[in-house]
Computed example of a mutant assay.
Amino acid sequence: MTYFKPRFIRSTFLIISTLLLFISCKKEIPAEGFVEVEGGKIWYRIIGEGEATPLLILHGGPGSRSCSMIPGYSLLAKDRKVIFYDQLGSGSSDRPSDTSLWRKERFVNEIELLREELQLDSLHILGQSWGGALLSEYLITREPEGVKSVIFSSPLLSTEDWMEDAKLLLSQMPEPIQDTIYKHEALKDYSAPVYLAAVDSFYSKHLSRKSWPYEPNPECENVGDFNSEVYNYMWGPTEFTATGTLLDFDRTKDLDKIDEPILFLAGEYDEARPETMYEYQKLAKNARVKIIENSGHSTMIDQPEQVAEAIGSFLNRVENREGAE
C-alpha cells in the first residue's frame, strides 16, 4: 500500500484548486454581444476560430460603423479571430446625444473595457482613418500590454496634415469642381445640390473608387446610419473643413514612442496620401508602408483581397519573428 505524505497531498490539492480557479475565470465569450461603457453599451462581433493572435478593428468616422468593413476584413478570419465593434454613438451601439461623451479619452476607455470583457490579453490592433487617431491615443497615453503589432490604415494622425492633403488633392480636380467646393465652403452652404455633386466627384476618386455612394452590403441591414452629429462635433461639416474638437489633433511627434511593429496602409488615391504615409514611417521606430493599388480611402471596400494579403503577410511576419525569439 502506497503512503502519501501530508505535504504531498496539500501540494496536489493546491495545484488542482489553482487549475480549477483558472478554468472558472475563463468565461465563455459570446460571438456577438454588448459591452457596458460610459454612456451606454457598445456592440461587438467576433468572426473566425483560428489560433493565431486575434485582430481588433477600430472603425473610422467619428460616427461611422463597422458593417461596411466586415466582408473584407473577414478574409483574415481563416487564421485568427477578427473582432469588430461599433463605437458609442455609431452603428449598432447606443446613440446618446450627450456631447460630453465625445471625448478621445472616453473612446480610449472603450478599447480597454472591450479588451477586458473579451479577454483580449494578446492582440493586434488596426485603426482605420479616425480609428487610427484613436489607436495612436490608446498606444501613447495608456502604453497597453499585450499589443503585438499596430496597423494604421489610411490614418488620421494629424489634422493639419489631413487638411493639407485634402487641399492638394482638391487642387488636382477640374477647376469647376474646385471653384464650386471653395465657394460653398466659404459660404458654409453644405447642402446646395451643386456643392454635393462636386463633393461626390471628389469622393468617387479619393474616398471609394469602387462604389460611391456606397452600395450597402447585407451586414449593414438594420444597422444605424452614419452619425453626422458625432462627426460634426468632433471633426466638422466636411472632409475639407475641420472645426470640431479634433481641430488641433496631432500625434505625429509621438510616433517614436510606439515600440510595437507598425504597418502604414493607404490607397493609391487615398485622402491619406501615400506620400504622407512615407513621412510617418520616418517618424516611427519599426514601420513598414504598403500602398494598395487602384484604391481610395476605403481600401477594404475597393480592394479587399489586396488588403487582406498585405495585412495577413504583416501579421504572419510579426508572429513568426516572435516564435523564433
Rank of each mutant, 00 (worst) to 15 (best):
A133T: 03
L157I: 14
V147P: 00
P193E: 11
E185Y: 04
Q128I: 07
S149G: 10
I151D: 07
F202Q: 00
Q119S: 11
P176S: 13
L134S: 05
S204N: 11
D225L: 09
S208Y: 04
K210R: 14
P213Y: 05
L126G: 06
K188I: 05
G131M: 07
E221L: 10
I140E: 08
R142P: 02
P216C: 01
G131E: 06
S228H: 09
V223G: 01
I140A: 09
A192V: 07
I140S: 07
E219R: 11
I181W: 10
I181P: 03
L118K: 01
V147H: 02
S208F: 03
K148Y: 06
S201W: 05
V199Q: 04
T141R: 13
K210G: 10
I151N: 08
Y138V: 04
D200T: 05
V223N: 01
E145W: 00
S149D: 11
L156E: 05
E219D: 12
F152Q: 08
G224S: 10
Y195W: 07
L126K: 06
A197H: 09
E229G: 01
E215V: 11
E137R: 08
D121E: 12
A186C: 05
T180H: 08
P193A: 10
L135I: 05
T159I: 03
T159C: 03
P216A: 06
A198N: 08
H124E: 06
